[in-house]
Design a protein around this nucleic acid. Structure first.
Lengths: 351, 351
DNA sequence: TCTCTGCACTTAATCGTTCAAGCTTTTCAT
DNA sequence: ATGAAAAGCTTGAACGATTAAGTGCAGAGA
């Protein structure tokens, strides 16, 4: 409760009878002044409660803030609850933290009241997931020549980090189809042009590749189906808009409540959240897994592995993806497109 | 690729032949100039690719940044993976976003290479969980008179948000003890003075209330035990340092691998993560829940409710806690201490 | 006609730093 | 002793905005 206002570098300098430059150097470039003076400055600083240069002023002057912004396609509220996004953030935070940077969270959603310039404070941007509106991203592009790294989608000629969605989904479908299935269902994630939570009919137009991440996953599934001479038309498709239990549950209930003769006995899901919801609802209905219903997921989130039956899924290392993105943005890694590999986890939901 | 450098407000003003004040007002205080001029300025701004005032300069001048920092007790990497912390952040983000603020993540851990002044950029701080080191917090306190809100622990005379840990744990233990138990075990979270993952012996000193959140939870358990004339000494206690599956699993394996005659048949856990790990490991060992082992948790995370058996637990609304903290920090809510209520969820792990 | 008020805009100080360039003083080889 | 180089410190101009105070001018009221 001593100081009514924080003391400034200038005042500290005046107090000591030295120039502001010396004080600045005492904090930033120890080699630029004598150890004796530096010691004196640091001591006086401590005595007066001066905590080092003000971040706002420093970043204005230097142009750098040591802040990296992560722009998330969905609302922050949703992203923070999503296991995959959280893991990505976790990886990003790990690297940033280790290198003295901090993490600013931005949402790319239109409905988020975006602070217009608040983004201009960051030194670089990690953009995750396909933006509903590209407004913010366009702003970033023109906002100066700050590094941008895209994750899970392509963004102009900025480096992008992807996982091998198509081969991974080919592999898991191939695995699943080793055991013949009578009725195959695919539960997609944000695949339709217009929002749809439920069955995909001919009335729906599908988003093109590049507009949704799940399109290439679907391609992988189709390739495996083709190999077994199964027509894509014979599989039933559903769609889900948001990767949460609340949104998944009604759609999966619809599927699982079909008469046994119509109900799929193999469900290829585009995310672990979808798959896990399917597992939960199936259990509630006494549908046996994998006897009556085999289920595959995508993502490899912890929750799927630490519960029984263990989920059969594709594991992508989202944390590592985050680490890589962060290293790229910090320039610790060449800024070039990357394709991360995934791993098939043969769990118990589709042995 | 047009501008090598972003244009400034000053340059824009020069281009238009008006003062910088007018340009500034065009963006910030529309009532201070004629609509005609404002229109002209905005148009020219768009033409030249001027995106509005620079956040760094603005925040230096005004002293406000529209950035709120959340200081997390643990590493960011861990916190972002933790369901409870994520929900809290989710609630915070929701409110901040709705009011045009952004979220900066800081870690209070010593081992995090803390950017010394990077915190000085924020307009306010939400401090979550007990800090291992209070260094950062002390810095915040003295760093100016910015609002600080503490969540889940007490911080000087700043407003703190708590949940009713003691009554909640009393209630759930009371519920659990309605069915007699032969051997009771309590699995704590960060209760011991020195790090300990495993059984708590007499050699361990427990942290005092105020140093760990679980102390008051334990008090609630003890009150319920006392009511049934069960001596606290007759219950076995374990401790866990980090609320992750990886750390919980070995400790719970140790418990569940005890000979059936020594193994607890009621396990009161300080978190849902611990409880869920117990459920998973018990299932793997063929220990029946709740017949052979009853389990209770704390937190009420989604994962516990969306899987079977449904977890018996105390639900705290972490999202709402986050919303409240954010509203307080923004001054939308009086900055006074709050005690949020919890709800007993009678799940299937301890009917 | 003259003063007064209000509007629209400008002036200029300021926010708290950093850093290239300049100025002394010391060091050291010759 | 001398000159050059190095060391140690200071000067002063940015960085890009905000805002209180001031100026000029049109229209209203007397």
């Amino acid at each position: 409760m001593s100081s009514p206002r924080r003391i400034t570098l200038k005042e500290l300098a005046a107090e000591l009878g030295v120039s502001t430059a010396s004080v600045s150097n005492a904090f930033n470039r120890p080699d630029q002044l004598s150890p004796a003076l530096r010691e004196r400055i640091l001591e006086e600083a401590k005595r007066l409660g001066y905590r080092g240069p003000d971040a706002k002023a420093r970043s204005l002057r230097t142009g750098r803030s040591r802040i990296i912004a992560v722009v998330l396609a969905e609302t922050l509220t949703y992203s923070l609850k999503d296991a995959v996004a959280s893991e990505l953030l976790s990886g990003i935070a790990e690297v940033l933290d280790a290198h003295g940077h901090t993490l600013l969270l931005l949402s790319g959603r239109q409905d988020a009241s975006q602070v217009p310039g608040s983004s201009s404070i960051a030194d670089g941007f990690i953009v995750y997931g396909l933006m509903a509106s590209m407004a913010l991203v366009e702003e970033l592009q023109s906002a100066g020549h700050k590094p941008i790294v895209a994750v899970d989608f392509d963004l102009g000629d900025h480096p992008a980090i992807h996982v091998d969605d198509e081969p991974a989904c080919y592999a898991i479908a191939q695995h699943a189809l080793k055991t013949p299935a009578s009725r195959i269902g695919i539960v997609n994630l944000r695949l339709t042009e217009t929002a749809c939570n439920g069955r995909i009919t001919e009335a729906h137009t599908l988003l093109p590749a590049g507009r949704t991440i799940t399109r290439s996953r679907l391609a992988g599934f189709h390739r495996a189906l083709a190999e077994r001479d199964i027509s894509p038309d014979s599989v039933t498709m559903w769609n889900i808009e948001e990767n949460t239990y609340e949104v998944c549950a009604p759609v999966l209930a619809e599927i699982l409540d079909l008469p046994a003769s119509e109900r799929p006995d193999l469900l290829l899901c585009m995310s672990d959240r979808i798959a896990l919801t399917a597992v939960t609802l199936a259990e509630q209905r006494g549908i046996r897994i994998p006897e009556d219903l085999r289920i595959t997921g995508f993502d490899g989130i912890e929750e799927g592995q630490y519960r029984s039956p263990r989920l059969t899924t594709v594991q992508q290392d989202s944390t590592e993806k985050g680490r890589l993105a962060a290293r790229m943005i910090l320039g610790l890694e060449p800024a070039s497109p990357r394709l991360l590999t995934t791993r098939l986890i043969q769990g118990e939901t589709c042995p």
